[in-house]
Amino acid sequence: MSDAAPMVLVSRVSQTFRRADGQKVRAVDDVSVQIPEGQFVCLLGPSGCGKTTLLQMVAGLLAPTQGEIRVAGQCVRGPAPERGMVFQKDSVFPWMRVIDNVEFGLKCRGVAKPERQAIARRYLAMVGLAAVERAWPRELSGGMLKRVAIATVFANGAAVLLLDEPFGALDYVTKRQLHDVLLTLWGAGASGGRRTVLFVTHDVDEALLLADRILVVHSGRIVDDMAIPAPRPRNSDSLLLPAMVANKHRLLAHLGLEVAPAVPVLAQ
């Protein structure tokens, strides 16, 4: 699309684990992919397919066994604040008040207290939690904790956001609300346009609603790379667009839930 260097460049990356029984497992197998700046990419696949492992390598929490990952031209060696991560588990520190959690990344970078407080307040307001900034995390619901986690990575100014099944444990309504929160923050793109997002999920509808592009991961490889050009903002009607329905069938086939791709389902 553009001739500028991609924001995220994964080149021939593999990750091999040794299981407890001594057997070698190739969780990620020679994966290469380029992601341009500002793109919202969903990594979709069944559990155990290697999508989380790939994300952890981009985050720098795990070093690739082979290959190289570059973000904004820089080779990834360990975690860094320009690659923010939202985890599947609750990662909000229970021993800090909500606002101190949102300020944490800024504090690590030495941003002065009044300034980081102002930034944290702004993002807390954007995720709808302005009223609970002094609360303890144990007083919040699961959905609210995810809002705090999202506000924290956005407040930290990460250029690349890595989300590892962030809404997997939430109910449908909360999940849909958080999709809106996430897309609003993504679209708001504070200073330099939209941020680049890698979003791991196993939920087909979630991927179709959120993504510009879906990478299907299976057995440690990227087996399909689909553009999702449906206009935004999307809603449940968007999923009924012919192109979306075709994409959904293709994704379900990849997950082994339908026999062949792009075969219309006959009414029974």
Binding site: G60, G78, A80, P81, M85, V153, L162
Partner: peptide, 8 residues
């Protein structure tokens, strides 16, 4: 892990 990705 979260602290490290936030820059700690």
């Amino acid at each position: 892990q979260s602290a490290r990705t936030l820059g700690a």
